[in-house]
Structures are given as C-alpha cells and as structure tokens.
Design a protein around this nucleic acid. Structure first.
Length: 269
DNA sequence: ATCGGGACCTGCTTGC
DNA sequence: TGCAAGCAGGTCCCGA
C-alpha cells in the first residue's frame, strides 16, 4: 500500500481526529513488528498529541516527552475507530483516546514499525535520509551531482532513500515512463537535461497521486475500503504485456534488485 | 564506496 | 481440485 502519497494521505486523514487528543491507554497485542515496540510507546499514558508530521514514509507523532514514529511497511494502515470495535486479525496496536475513539494499526505482513525518539533527539533511522521529493531542495542539479560515477540502474537509484525519500516501486516506474527513460540506464549516465525531465516527472506523479488519494488505500475513518484513485492513471506499473498507452507496444516486465519493473521498450530509451 | 542479495512476514494468484 | 511456488506497494544489513 504505502508509498509517499499513501503515507501523506494517511497523515491528513488521521490528523484532525488526533490533534490535541490525549492518549488514555495503549494496547499492544504483540511485542514486536519489524522491531520491538518500545516501552516508551506502550506506556504512553496521558500524553497529548501535539502534532503529526511526515518525514520520508515515517509518520511522526509529537507527544511532548518525545516523538513516536510509525512506519506502515508494505501492508500497514492506520484507522480511527470507536475504541470498543473488536480487533480483527493483524490489528496489532490501539492507541485509545480521551473521546472514546482509538487509532488502530493493522499490518498483516508486519514489515511496519513503531519506534520512539526521546525529545530533542533525531532517530538514527531518520538521519542520512535524502530530501523530500516535493520540496525545493530536490532538484535536477542535486540528482545529477549525486549520480556522478554511479553505475546502479536509474530505477534502483531513485528508490534509494539516502538519495531521495518516498519514491517506491510504483512511482519510480511511472516517473521513468513519463520522462521517457529506460529503467536500466546507469544513474551516472543521465544528462542534466534528462534529470530535469525526470525530476519534474517525479514531482508530477507524486502530486497527482496525492491528489487522487494514493493508488489504492482503504479509508481511515470507516471500513468501507474506499480506494485511492491513482490506479486509473498508471501507465506501466502492473501492466506487463498490455499495450503502451502512448505507442501500443506491449509493456515489458523485468527484475531489478529483486523488484519487478515494467516499462515500454519503445518510449523509454 | 558501491552494489546486489538475503532477510523479515502473511496472503493472494498462478500454474502444474 | 489441491498444493506449492511465486509474487506483492519497504528497507535494513551484510558480504563481495
């Protein structure tokens, strides 16, 4: 589910329900997800949620004494529910609130994580992260510079969070299609002019996906499963063998670094 | 320093 | 029809 647009959509969805609320009780139904759930989180009683930020694909909850980090992994989601809603399979953590609601973390594959930052200390996982793709400091000049001498395929390079955060498997493929670049091209061989096209494609794809509410995402507020609508705009992701929207040629699927990549051999050189 | 691969998990789809 | 293999939107860590 979650790439950057999905995580940001989640943040915007839950924020109005949580700001200023007090956490009355935390129910952790298992002691670890990807990593152990910190004691500081489990004992978060009477803490007030002051702000919810996003950095990369991490959601950061400011609660005064520190910051709680939530990563949704591949299959995680957060929803607001009445606190007495019976937990379903894979509902791992509830944060009960002072208004009878709760924030519930659901994650079948458990690649997600809940972590803790003491006040004033940046979490080690958040250091060494690249710029946010929708911010001003993510530019063609920056990427061109970073890519110098790198032989790794451009697609893998885009998914490297030390270079730029938030570009996952779907949007890396879609951005490369929009920019007309073959995903196998070594990162260091992309000219500045092509970086300009690629950087603006990334910004455009992520912005469009954000406006559509993500590619596919269950609603946060009820269980109706309202999907994101970006799926309708996909050009290559998940379209192996289907005709290219631009030239009609069948979309090819390959493997890069254990992940599948779809692209058009005609439109992407 | 850089790169690729394995690892962490469950569940759905595909193919024999 | 049944079962196993393959695959899935993330990302850290290790060895070459």
């Amino acid at each position: 589910m979650p790439e950057l647009p999905e995580v940001e959509t989640t943040r915007r969805g839950i924020e109005p329900h949580l700001l200023g609320r007090q956490i009355t009780r935390v129910i952790a139904r298992r002691d670890k997800l990807r990593w152990a759930i910190p004691q500081e989180v489990i004992t978060l009683k009477n803490a007030r949620i002051q702000a919810i930020h996003r950095r990369s694909k991490y959601l950061l909850f400011d609660v005064g004494r520190g910051q709680m980090l939530v990563h949704l992994g591949m299959t995680g989601n957060l929803r607001i529910l009445p606190a007495d809603t019976p937990p379903q399979k894979h509902d791992h953590i509830d944060w009960q609130l002072d208004n009878g609601q709760c924030l519930r973390f659901h994650d079948p594959r458990r690649f997600g994580a809940v972590l803790w930052n003491p006040a004033g200390q940046p979490h080690p996982l958040l250091q060494h992260l690249g710029p946010e793709p929708l911010e001003q400091d993510f530019t063609a000049a920056y990427m061109h510079q970073q890519a110098k001498g790198r032989r790794v395929a451009i697609k893998s390079f885009l998914m490297n969070a030390k270079i730029v955060v938030g570009v996952g498997n779907i949007y890396a493929q879609e951005s490369l299609f929009l920019a007309g670049i073959n995903p196998k091209t070594p990162a260091g061989r992309i000219s500045l002019a092509r970086w300009q096209r690629l950087v603006s494609a990334i910004k455009q794809v992520l912005t469009n996906a954000l406006e559509a509410g993500g590619t596919s995402f269950s609603d946060f507020l009820n269980a109706d499963g309202k999907p994101g609508y970006f799926e309708q705009q996909l050009n290559v992701y998940g379209r192996a063998g289907k005709p290219c929207h631009q030239c009609g040629h069948p979309i090819r699927q390959i493997k890069q670094g254990q992940r599948s990549t779809c692209y058009c051999t005609q439109c992407q050189r």
